[in-house]
Nucleic acid binder design. Structure first.
Lengths: 201, 201
DNA sequence: ATTTTAAGTAAATAATCGTTTACTTACTTT
DNA sequence: AAAGTAAGTAAACGATTATTTACTTAAAAT
């Protein structure tokens, strides 16, 4: 039996990410993707059930999966609130700064009904990814440092401004001078930490 | 000369918003829209140049325009930081809570290349909408209450968690018990305000 | 009341969509 | 070396896309 070509598999994923980042998810068609990857449309269907299967796997495996491991690098549940949040922010900024294509698909996950389903089930909802961060936050809640908000609220306060800043980083990408720098991102992290803490702590 | 029917015009916009909210922007076609609005496809092209023109006008006029006026209701540049930010948060939450369809299209504006162009040009970039809020923030910067971050950073800290909470509000819409309540949103507003302020103020 | 004119309709346009059919190629197993 | 088999290709499938052509309708202007 002839083995599946990992080279072609990789070309499919790479070209799919590129087309989505450069021309939008709405302009990704199977025939365009096949042509860009230098293969026949049928080949895509050997590796993926259909278009939805391809997009969900791209989103879950390549974008979310890789982000999960990147964000938890050097992160530990036992860190102080300041150290932990700073690590999450720094890791996220570093990861997406060098992976714009993945960030673009990540943002589609918020609006596209197809990807949003996968997004909620796997990721941030309460999956293995968020679990360490969840326990980290709950520890500081029990210690009296953080207020007892539902974790959806803590998550919004913690992650939403971060993703917005990454988006800003890329929007001003071709301007004369970059506005969003690492220093600024870490300053914003400090502001978020101040806001999260119970008043007077 | 026969006058344009405002009824049909309104039906087009309403059905477009409904289809986008219920089935996603990617499932809105001109023929489906025409059928849903009870008209001929050609009629849409009497009122709009093409699909892009329709979507941009829907986004700018109906979603962004109406949000701009809603968020600035009862808001004044002269307010204290706490009062101003609280007003912005409360107004935003109230507006989108009763306008889910508009919120869905708003979120598409973050990822869809087509809408994102309009988004940046008109809105939050530095348009007439954000100007009063920008001056409000700058006044508190000059007073020494807020740090001198670029306004992109202040905007991210101020708005991003708010939109995330509205998203959460709708995601748990059909659960037994609503998680995101107005009280919780205003608690989160207070947290954001604490974070924004210079340390020690 | 008739003319004028743009609004509106039904149906068709070419292009493109996701997916499949019919066939060939290349690699593993015997 | 030959047989077997799934990977891969080229071309086509019907369905659907945005938009237009040819025609009808309704209302304002004469």
């Amino acid at each position: 039996m002839r083995p599946k070509s990992v080279v072609k598999e990789e070309a499919i994923r790479q070209e799919a990410l590129r087309i989505i980042a450069e021309e939008g998810l709405e302009n990704l068609s199977m025939q365009r993707l096949a042509k860009a990857a230098g293969i026949s449309p049928r080949t895509i269907y050997i590796k993926y059930e259909n278009k939805e299967d391809l997009l969900v796997k791209l989103f879950i495996d390549v974008v979310l999966g890789a982000y999960e491991t990147a964000v938890l690098k050097d992160f530990s549940e036992d860190m102080t609130l300041d150290a932990g949040v700073t690590a999450i922010w720094r890791n996220t900024f570093h990861y997406f700064r060098k992976n714009r294509e993945r960030f673009v698909l990540m943002q589609y996950g918020r609006s596209s009904p197809l990807l949003n389903k996968a997004y909620q089930e796997r990721d941030i909802g309460m999956g293995a990814f968020f679990a360490p961060i969840h326990r980290f936050l709950q520890r500081h809640v029990r210690a009296g440092l953080l207020p007892r908000y539902p974790h959806e609220v803590l998550r919004a306060l913690l992650f939403a401004p971060l993703f917005d800043l990454v988006q800003e980083y890329f929007e001003y990408r071709d301007r004369p001078r970059q506005i969003i720098t690492e220093k600024l991102v870490l300053d914003a992290a400090a502001a978020v930490i101040r806001g999260l803490k119970k008043p007077g702590k």
